[in-house]
Design a protein around this nucleic acid. Structure first.
Lengths: 339, 339
DNA sequence: TAATATTACTTTATCGTTAATGTTAAATTT
DNA sequence: AAATTTAACATTAACGATAAAGTAATATTA
């Protein structure tokens, strides 16, 4: 940071060897001194620190990783970093990892299994110490591969029923139940459920909570009101337009996510502001927890920070402990925020 | 992906040597075959491909990088990945890089210069081929360091006036001018400007556009209406509350970003829905371009995808060309979206 | 005081790949 | 038929760090 010379080409990188030559110690001693290992005298350590700083030494962690077998790098594989929920998760993951001297690279799967598979192989070829994965769930071969190869990983937000893995999720059944219970107690019986794709575990569980609320309130459930929407931008708008065109009746909407909820509200306003103005729409995830959107959205909340941190903590403990026989499976509580 | 054995420990990784032993060729030949280099017969190449697939070979790119000096990895250093604008940028960056067989890791600086400096050193120690950086601009020592060490990098969204670098930004002066010109032509004279911190180039330029619009419309500008807000969540809410308590008069608001605009609208609604209902608030960035929020926000738009892609393209061309004497500086056009 | 332990190092080997150079047999040219 | 080129490999060394094992001087203990 001090040597602002005129040299425009890439400078020769300083290595341990260079510091060794300058100080008269061996490269190994330099390494051990800079890594605060034992068997180095205080004077030597301080001297080596001083010289390496003067020389502008930047350790080559690639080389270190090759030898040590550790990269202190985690792959975070998610559907889409530009989804606000994912972005919030990833932010907290990155922060938590950084404070533990780990770093992460992000890969977006775009909810495509092939990209997920590529991402995992890519991660392994980069010798990551572990993987945080929000799986597409369109297949589970790659997850089996991770299990069989003993790669430390943790699932985020989704889980498999036919595979034992570590995971961190929100209590989707309960969250969904709370939302529907609230609506039913407000007198709604025809609650349109714009759920996510059925192969995603969180969608399965939110459906379970939806049904449970009808059963517990002794209200008959109309299966026609249960819809599945994709997660591409604008998908829900088209879906709700079609639903309304087809003449389906409903008095409230429960959406798979806040994003879907926004689209529904957006679409309903566009179709007929007055006609739908008394139709409550409830979302999921409370992505407003860190933003202040002027539109008050009732939504199912849970601590995204806790989920992200827990995922990191589980992964790092697995990496550092090496062996774990009992699976670490966390389900974080959900509550309803009425706005 | 096929060997789903019961082995729970981490499996011995297959190396080029293992394939060499199995096939009878040398490790070098295996490497060259798998990398589609020359001087390998078609039959040999196909045979090696087959065997390496059967053995479940995953290349150790750490080792390859150490030897070749290339990592095909880019560091993306941004203030906060959970900011929707940044998340959109980063998504497009990751996609574009992935399609070019590069990958990226993300570091959040939280707008702190020390973290930015750490991030850059971290990136260099990871031997990245280049850096995409949205700088805090609280200092520029690290940028000078990058320049002097010939590290390929490109600035995203912000630029320095006292340093020649590659950068990609939006036309902030013009975007800001458009917004204010629109408001003035609507009859507004007291336009509160909730700008970003003054040391950020985009804030400087938006202020320039703000002033320009007053000059060109021959309207006297009240310097008291120019405020700077921080970028932590909720900051603008507190700021606008204070401004209103102090009795400052204004008939319209121009915000540094959509996020700030949302907070302003949120706060105004909270204070007195009726009193402020005719106060237009204009944002910047059009983060709704990929979402459908039900609240119509007038905002300055530009192509976030073009900016992100251009940043990647510049960086990769710098990496691959090695030498570039003329700086690549792109300013993308802005327009006003009235909602 | 001899035996042992400790301190503070050094030396050597190795991680897995790939760049650079070397080799051999067959094909081509003269 | 001798000389030269080419194809298709193999061998060696190196990237830069660190783990493991070795060593010499000094300190401690029996």
């Amino acid at each position: 940071m001090k040597d602002l010379s005129e040299n425009k080409g890439r400078k020769k990188k300083i290595t341990l060897k260079d510091i060794a030559k300058k100080t008269g110690f061996s490269a190994n001693t330099i390494s051990r001194a800079l890594k605060n290992k034992e068997d180095i005298s205080k004077a030597t350590r301080e001297y080596i620190y001083k010289v390496s700083k003067e020389m502008g030494y930047i350790p080559n962690s690639i080389a270190g990783s090759l030898r040590s077998g550790k990269t202190r790098t985690i792959a975070t594989i998610v559907p889409d970093i530009s989804d606000p929920l994912i972005a919030i998760w990833v932010k907290d993951i990155e922060t938590r990892l950084r404070l533990n001297n780990y770093n992460t690279f992000i890969i977006n799967t775009e909810e495509e299994y092939e990209i997920e598979e590529d991402a995992i192989f890519f991660a392994l070829s980069k010798n990551v110490d572990g993987i945080i994965l929000c799986p597409t769930q369109k297949d589970n071969k790659d997850i089996k591969f991770l299990i069989n190869n003993g790669v430390p990983f943790v699932l985020l937000g989704r889980r498999f029923y036919d595979l034992e893995t570590d995971y961190v999720i929100s209590d989707d059944v309960h969250g969904s139940f709370l939302a529907i219970d609230y609506l039913i107690k407000k007198g709604h019986k025809k609650i349109l459920f714009m759920n996510g794709p059925g192969y995603i575990s969180s969608a399965k569980e939110r459906l379970e909570g939806y049904k449970k609320a009808f059963v517990e309130n002794n209200v008959k459930l109309d299966e026609n009101l249960i819809k599945e929407v994709g997660n591409t931008s604008g998908y829900s708008i088209k879906a709700i337009n079609k639903i309304i065109q087809e003449g389906l009746e409903f008095s409230a909407v429960f959406a798979f996510s806040d994003i879907v909820a926004w689209e529904i509200i957006y679409a309903l306003q566009n179709i007929d502001k007055n006609r739908f103005k008394n139709i409550p729409v409830i979302g999921f995830d409370n992505i407003q927890s860190r933003f202040f959107y002027p539109y008050p959205l009732t939504t199912v909340n849970y601590s995204k920070k806790k989920i992200a941190y827990k995922a990191v903590d589980i992964l790092l403990s697995n990496i550092e402990e090496k062996f774990h026989d009992n699976f670490k499976q966390y389900i974080f509580e959900t509550n309803l925020i009425v706005r």
